[in-house]
Write a protein that binds this DNA or RNA. Structure first.
Ligand SMILES: [Mn+2]
Ligand SMILES: [Mn+2]
Ligand SMILES: [Zn+2]
Ligand SMILES: [Zn+2]
Lengths: 139, 139
DNA sequence: TTTAGAAAAACAACTGAGTTGCTTTATTGA
DNA sequence: TCAATAAAGCAACTCAGTTGTTTTTCTAAA
């Protein structure tokens, strides 16, 4: 596993204490993170403008990608594919758990191929699954 | 085509001038409508609380369904299937056009079946296509 | 047609996520 | 060590959406 310092460097982002912390938070997190949670995590220590601008930079530079959120709020997950160029052409799907209200990246289920016969120009596809996550099924 | 008065009655919603107008707006609209557009449409004539609460009632009673929006704002489209019970188990997909920024319901492309082998409990699936709509391709 | 009960509309105040402009500070590479 | 530049801090703002309460309108039954 590549360390966060190298990840930041690869993306031409300066290695500041906050960005190191933020990236570590994403690396540790199994599912995805709501901006609200990020703000709580760094409450009082870092300014919210700093937080939003760092998230934006991470997203633009292919470190994290936006995922659907049960409350329509901003939510992100670490990129699993190599998205350094910022293209974000993921093929995994996203599960929104109606129990814990988390969103998980699901590698086992990939996005379907869209038949070109219909004549739509498709850039990328997001398959959103609404149900119950593995963890919540156990409880 | 069923008239809006019957539609409202079927859903146990009172036939008020505003709700008739709002439902007619949805019936006329080919794609889907952002709440912002609805507010503009009824600007000065109806209160925004009225608007949001009517939308909520329409959604709950199976007249309209939420669709993804390019700006993460609330956006709705008329239900094509019979969703009177409010279950909203649609199988069509949604196209977000990166040119006109509209969202279209696409009946031709349906949501994939999720293999039960993985062990996830799935309630419903939304397939979100990002690309260019038919109309914008012509221009 | 009248009327009472219930639903919907209006009003007003509020919440809070996210943005923006600008200044100050920290990082990095030369 | 020292610019150049990116990032952090600060403060004010925007605006979509919510909520509580009062007033009006609709509807169905008498
Ligand atoms: Mn993902
Ligand atoms: Mn639809
Ligand atoms: Zn869960
Ligand atoms: Zn379009």
């Amino acid at each position: 596993m590549i360390d966060v310092h190298s990840m930041l460097k690869m993306c031409n982002l300066k290695r500041t204490p906050f960005r190191v912390n933020l990236l570590e938070l994403f690396v540790q997190t199994k599912s995805s993170i709501q901006t609200h949670t990020i703000r709580e995590t760094f409450e009082g220590r870092f300014n919210k403008a700093t937080i939003y601008r760092a998230i934006e930079a991470f997203e633009k530079n292919g470190l994290i990608h936006k995922v659907p959120d049960i409350n329509n709020l901003l939510r992100y997950a670490l990129c699993r594919e190599n998205c350094v160029n910022g293209s974000h052409k993921h093929t995994h799907s996203h599960l929104i758990c109606n129990s814990c209200r988390e969103t998980y990246c699901i590698d086992q289920i990939t996005t379907p191929n869209i038949p070109s016969a219909i004549g739509l120009k498709i850039d990328y596809v997001d398959l959103v699954l609404n149900g119950e996550c593995f963890s919540c099924q156990l409880n």
